[in-house]
Amino acid sequence: MDNMFFIKKGYKDNDTAKTYETEFVGEYWNDERIKTSSVYQYDVYKFAASLIKKKNYQIGIDLGCGPGTKGKWFLAPYLKELILIDQPNCKSFALKALPKSFFYGVDLENLSLNLENKADIIICADVIEHLSNPLPTLEFCRDSIKNNGIIIISTPERDILRGRNCFESPHASHVREWNKDELNKLLEFIGLKIIDHKLLPPKKLTILSKIIMKAFGPIGYRKEWHSCQMVICTI
């Protein structure tokens, strides 16, 4: 297959996007990044929490958990078992936030974990755009979910965020970004069944933003308010 990630012809990957670090080198998780991580993908985790409570899910995986802030707020209070997976340098931050969880430090582009128990729900929020090869991470999601479980995958919606004429991400740590059709094709290629596709704010909205959206609906939309695409999948 010429285009294994289903990105449109002419799109240029960002080769400078390198975010993998071991626990011994680098300063990727600095104070500012930890602070901002608590507001990004806020609505994705909020949705996951509502689903966990509704379905009474017991085992969850936060794949690309970062420092664990949103997992502490939205996942741990409702799950019997929470598994955290991310690059090794997240370990100390994640386990500080979630000391009763299990943490696996891995290279997400070479992910080959075999967990003892499959999960009821997997959250992979804004991870795949950082990976030169997202297939191992997506295959892990497919192979680690129960037959009746749910996989939640989010990533920027390129056409909304950048415009239809974008052929390269200006975000320094994004290798590539998908539009809705491209992402759906990728997930279906992996073997996932798409249940729903939603557009959400990429980060927690202010009260004023919520008031404007409620008052004006689509007319009041800005790309910053609905440029995160969240796909709900099963196998």
Rank of each mutant, 00 (worst) to 15 (best):
I7G: 12
G10E: 00
Y11M: 03
K12V: 15
A17V: 03
A17E: 05
Y20W: 05
F24T: 10
G26S: 04
G26D: 08
G26Q: 08
E27R: 14
E27I: 14
Y28I: 06
Y28L: 10
W29F: 05
N30I: 03
I34F: 03
K35W: 15
D43G: 07
D43M: 08
V44N: 09
Y45F: 05
Y45S: 02
K46M: 10
K46H: 11
A49P: 02
L51Y: 01
I52P: 15
K53D: 09
K53V: 09
Y57N: 05
Y57M: 07
Y57P: 02
D62L: 09
G64Y: 09
C65A: 11
G68H: 08
G68Y: 06
G68P: 08
G71N: 01
W73T: 14
W73S: 13
W73V: 14
A76W: 11
L79F: 08
L79E: 04
K80Y: 13
E81G: 09
L82A: 11
I83H: 13
L84D: 05
Q87W: 00
Q87A: 08
F93M: 11
A94I: 05
L98D: 02
P99H: 04
P99T: 04
S101M: 09
S101G: 07
S101Y: 08
G105N: 03
N110D: 07
L111T: 06
L113T: 00
L115A: 02
N117W: 13
A119G: 00
I121D: 01
I123Y: 02
C124N: 05
C124I: 03
H130I: 03
P134Q: 02
E139Y: 13
F140A: 02
F140H: 00
F140L: 01
F140I: 00
D143S: 14
I145E: 07
I145V: 08
N148K: 06
N148R: 03
I150V: 09
I150W: 07
I151C: 06
I152D: 05
R158N: 03
I160A: 06
L161Y: 13
R162G: 10
G163C: 05
C166A: 11
E168K: 15
P170I: 02
H171P: 14
S173R: 13
S173C: 12
R176L: 09
N179H: 02
K180T: 15
D181I: 13
L183S: 06
N184G: 11
K185R: 12
L187R: 07
F189H: 13
G191F: 00
K193N: 12
D196K: 12
L199N: 05
L199R: 00
L199C: 02
P201G: 01
T206P: 08
T206F: 10
S209Q: 08
I211N: 11
I211Y: 12
I212S: 05
M213Q: 12
M213T: 10
A215C: 14
A215G: 14
F216L: 07
G217T: 06
I219G: 06
E224R: 10
E224P: 11
W225L: 04
S227R: 04
S227G: 08
C228I: 10
C228E: 08
Q229R: 05
V231E: 00
I232W: 03
T234L: 06
